[in-house]
Design a protein around this nucleic acid. Structure first.
Lengths: 228, 228
DNA sequence: ACCTGAACACCGTTCAAGT
DNA sequence: ACCTGAACACCGTTCAAGT
């Protein structure tokens, strides 16, 4: 092929192609070469838009985090309320569930978040909302920072575990469909894990488990207020 | 080279070489080819020991998790105490801090944990300890399962964030040492993040932040007991 | 059983060259 | 500025063949 026409793609078009690839074939398929191919470009042409793969992934993270609505209450900054803690709880819950919904409905997005620094403008915007909520509840700035960090950890970690678990059960199903392969790794160690085994039969719903965990975390965080 | 002598390596030797590579050059250096090369083997010889890379990584995870001491109190099963919640707290804290120490002192180990299912025997052993602690505190099995999951998430997530943060500041330092490169990505967006900016100047110690977060999480989890 | 060597289908990235 | 084509130094994995 000769150089071809100057298409001059926008970053939007490139990111759209990358997300299409992500949702169709998973995170591993989001390669510089793969995205270039989907756009009808040579791999090297990608380097005129992004200096490296990290920058491309960072662009994707920014786009997906940008879809999280924040501070949705219409009253703007005037948010003073009778109960600062209750206010904080609802604001943090909105961020937590919003973020989870964003990632759960986007297969492969977890890999994206885990592979990328999370220091872009939209990540900072989310941080700011969490900090505002916790300081509004009466926490000092240092505690609010730690509380926001704990929420960050919990949301991302929960989604990552859910995704890993979903992938594993999908594999297990695919394996069960091939009757030739006997159940491998049936270790039957001397050890047994009665509680864990009984627990596994419960088959908890991921969404409910997430909700419960965030509520309990908030119970602990919002109790960390200076006595007043 | 001809086939060479039958060395018949043990899994231990292979895993040791893999960990040496992990600590020396990071998680990305732990490749089938890399480990084989460190052992003086051809890449394909690795496949007589492990069916694929996943299995090799799973072996590494099992070895590192095996170093976590559990149930260190000498009294064995006789653990009934006046305050079940206080007992549970100390047991969970032991697991959480033990696990964190294991990972923090082993650069690259986080990548390992994030890339592998965590369903091996040692992972189950840790699960069992957490479940025992929470049920001992009076939680029903379903709640204990959710609580254990929350702890799992928090410990791994915290270590993952710390590692990412450490990597980022290391990069920033390396960049600062090359005075030719001006400070890139100084966006100066219209938005500003006063709380997040002030928060960043606090420079919280990761170990203290972790401790605080786990304590707050446990505050919330151990309050989730049936009223008695 | 354990190992080699060649091969397949991939990566991210750089460089010289074209328009 | 945007793009191609060749190239470099890697991946995981398979296959046929040797001992």
């Amino acid at each position: 092929m000769k150089p071809g026409p100057r298409r001059s793609l926008s970053h939007r078009e490139i990111l759209d192609a990358a997300f299409e690839l992500l949702e169709a074939k998973g995170f591993d398929a989001v390669s510089v070469r793969g995205v270039a191919g989907a756009l009808g470009l040579t791999p090297t042409a990608m380097y005129t838009y992004y200096p490296n793969k990290q920058a491309l992934l960072a662009g994707m993270v920014e786009q997906v985090l940008g879809r999280l609505p924040i501070g949705s209450t219409a009253d703007g900054t005037a948010r003073a309320s009778a109960d600062g803690a209750a206010d904080a709880r609802s604001r943090v819950l909105a961020v937590a569930h919003g973020l989870r919904d964003l990632l759960v409905h986007r297969p492969g997005a977890v890999g994206l978040l885990l592979a990328t620094p999370l220091d872009g403008a939209n990540a900072r915007r989310i941080d700011e909302e969490l900090l505002a909520a916790f300081t509004g509840a009466g926490l000092d700035l240092a505690s609010a920072g730690r509380a926001a960090h704990a929420v960050r950890i919990h949301v991302l970690g929960a989604v990552a575990f859910d995704a890993a678990e979903a992938g594993r059960t999908a594999e297990a199903q695919a394996e069960a469909e091939t009757p030739g392969a006997a159940s491998d790794t049936l270790w039957d160690d001397l050890e047994s894990f009665p509680l864990a085994d009984r627990c596994r039969t419960l088959a908890d719903d991921p969404a409910e488990r997430f909700s419960w965990g965030v509520e309990r975390l908030l119970d602990g965080l919002l109790a960390a207020m200076p006595a007043r």
